[in-house]
């Protein structure tokens, strides 16, 4: 199972991106997206922002489960297409955590939600730094490591 995560700021530009794979069931943590998918991922997420903008005015909740789908090339060299799902988390300050994942949401909804809650915690800590303004790129390597550690824990 592979995941592509992006944090999008209030002006729709990415402030953080990360790719990882699952550590469960013997996975080694590297994502298995095919090269075509790797190129498509940012575009897929960018188009899903439109859907987020629609949904965000209809619900109070922050966790947006599996709100978009993409049918695209699978992992490995086979030419079969698989379904990719996009889940998201919208903070009260309209910062979007969006993630493409390639397995059905039913198995993973809780762990994705937990992952987003931890990510929210990390994001707020970054935000509290006076030298960090909203929508700045998060280039801290410690943040990156912590995100990957969260991914290892939940996904």
């Amino acid at each position: 199972m592979s995941y592509y995560l992006a944090i999008i700021g209030t002006t729709d530009s990415p402030i953080y991106e990360c790719e990882f794979g699952t550590h469960k069931q013997g996975g080694d943590g590297t994502s298995k997206f095919s090269p075509e998918m790797k190129e498509l991922n940012p575009f897929i997420l960018h188009s899903s922002i439109d859907i987020v903008e629609d949904i965000q005015w209809q619900t109070n909740s922050m966790f947006l489960k599996s709100f978009d789908e993409f049918h695209g090339p699978g992992t490995g060299s086979t030419s079969t297409n698989v379904n990719y799902y996009i889940s998201g988390f919208l903070t009260s300050g309209n910062v979007k955590f969006l993630m493409i994942h390639d397995n059905s949401v039913y198995k993973n909804e809780d762990s994705i939600k937990q992952f987003f809650m931890d990510l929210n915690d990390l994001y707020v800590k970054t935000l509290l730094n006076p030298f960090y303004k909203v929508n700045d790129v998060i280039s801290s390597s410690v943040f990156d490591l912590k995100v990957k550690a969260c991914a290892k824990k939940y996904l």
Partner: peptide, 8 residues
């Protein structure tokens, strides 16, 4: 200096 990280 709570939650402060100096610029990079």
């Amino acid at each position: 200096a709570e939650f402060v990280e100096l610029p990079d």
